[in-house]
Simulated scan of single mutants.
Amino acid sequence: MLLYNKALDANHALLRMTALLISWKTDMVEGEALRMFDFLIANPAHIEKLSLPKDEFIERKVFKSYRNRYQNFEPKSLFNAMKDIHFMVIERFVEIGILRVDKNTYSYHVELDNIPNGLRVLAESKENSISKQAIEFIVANLTQISVTGPAGLKKITSLMDYKYDVN
């Protein structure tokens, strides 16, 4: 049986990341954060599995309904499989001017005005296959969390190693 996984579709990743950047409205973004957030948008059921304090972010339980018996995967392996697609999309964003490399950090300056109109319309459409609920949860709850550290995104998502990160 052949199954389509939108997480491994480069065009869908471009659309997901565009929708995230439009909703986030940030001036700077770390590449690792963008990658982790894209994984969560492509796989909203993983949001329910985040290692966050039980009393906080109670609304993440709604993402349990996104579970799909055909999308049974090991999250870290899928995240690693998405790496080349993520780098390709980020490189494309740099080429068209949506992201500009910050020479002093591992971050990018975000230029939302450079998003092509057709891509913007599709990313903001209510009829696309992107979970608006996941994007809203990420923007409201996760974007202010540091990527590294004992309570950072790498740790709470379990998608990247964090043990030897320097804060």
Rank of each mutant, 00 (worst) to 15 (best):
I138S: 06
M88K: 15
L14C: 08
L122Y: 02
I58N: 04
F137D: 05
A123H: 01
V29Y: 05
G118C: 09
V62K: 00
I41M: 09
D55L: 11
L112M: 06
I115A: 09
L153I: 06
L78G: 08
D165H: 05
I96P: 00
K76Y: 03
A45K: 08
A140V: 09
E91K: 15
N5T: 14
I115M: 06
S77Y: 06
E136Q: 15
P44Y: 03
Y162T: 07
I22R: 02
R100W: 09
L142E: 09
L8F: 10
M82I: 05
N117H: 09
S158D: 15
L112T: 01
N114G: 11
K64H: 00
K154V: 04
T148L: 04
N80M: 09
T148Q: 04
S158P: 06
G31I: 10
H86C: 13
I98A: 06
L119V: 14
G152F: 07
F93D: 00
N68K: 15
Q133H: 07
E111F: 14
H12D: 12
L142T: 10
R67N: 08
L78S: 05
F87K: 14
V121L: 12
A10R: 07
A134G: 10
F87T: 11
V121Q: 06
A10T: 12
V94W: 01
K132Q: 15
F39N: 09
A134D: 02
L8G: 10
